[in-house]
């Protein structure tokens, strides 16, 4: 019997990249359990495999071997469209480079995941407005990304991650493109979300940022060091 309190259960995950006959073993057998309500930070040197691991946790990519149980469902052998469904429902992504659509307003960017979830227009509009207000962006809803500061853009991205009310927030270097002040703001938001019950997996190489997490895990050369 699996404990219902476990959100992420990775066992013996490996990931190989093959380029021109050369196989690179990027992840070399990673086993990790993340409980619901956890806030963990994964740190490690550049090239150690942090982003690769996050892509697998976020089911953007599939492992070469090993199993991944997310919220009691084995996602390691799912088809592309099933994975899209899982990403849409279970996971909110926050990227280092924000990844907002430049042609769309802040509000439209936030609404995007709920369109793919099939939420009704009036309902998704109201929900997006509420989330943006909670993050202090009520005056910026109609701005396009290039009319926002980096910190504001990252807050819009967080609002988007929250739109479908996922259990898990994955943030890959969310403060990497921000100054210290904006970075602190983002971390405070993440802490707040964790206090409200969201499970957060944060990737960073900055010790100052990692210390906000409840638990810190190091990755070195594709292996976890506890």
């Amino acid at each position: 019997m699996k404990s219902t309190n476990v959100l992420i259960n990775l066992s013996k995950i490996t990931k190989d990249y093959v380029t021109e006959d050369i196989t690179t073993n990027v992840l070399k057998g990673i086993s990790l359990v993340v409980n619901k309500g956890d806030f963990i930070a994964i740190t490690g040197r550049s090239g150690s495999g942090k982003s690769t691991l996050m892509n697998i946790i976020g089911v953007l990519d599939i492992p070469t071997s090993g199993t991944y149980i997310l919220n009691n469902v084995d996602v390691s052998k799912m088809e592309e469209d099933e994975l899209a469904f899982v990403r849409n429902k279970e996971i909110g992504f926050v990227f280092q480079s924000f990844n907002l659509l430049n042609r769309a307003s802040a509000l439209e960017n936030v609404i995007l995941p709920s369109i793919y979830a099939g939420v009704k227009p009036s309902e998704r509009h109201d929900r997006a407005v509420k989330i943006l207000k909670d993050l202090g962006l009520q005056d910026k809803m109609n701005n396009r990304p290039n009319q926002l500061s980096g910190g504001q853009q990252q807050r819009v991205a967080i609002a988007r991650a929250l739109m479908n009310n996922p259990e898990l927030i994955l943030a890959d270097e969310p403060t990497g493109n921000l100054d210290t002040k904006s970075g602190q703001d983002v971390m405070n938001i993440l802490k707040n979300l964790n206090n409200q019950g969201k499970t957060i997996v944060l990737i960073t190489h900055e010790a100052d940022i990692a210390k906000h997490a409840k638990k810190i895990i190091h990755i070195e050369d594709g292996k976890l060091i506890h």
Binding site: D81, A84, F85, N88, K89, F93, N99, P113, Y116, A117
Partner: peptide
């Protein structure tokens, strides 16, 4: 390409 990647990350299916 990047927009397509983002849409897929946010839950767009192939058919979308």
């Amino acid at each position: 390409t990047k927009e397509i990647g983002l849409r897929k990350a946010l839950g767009a299916k192939r058919s979308d």
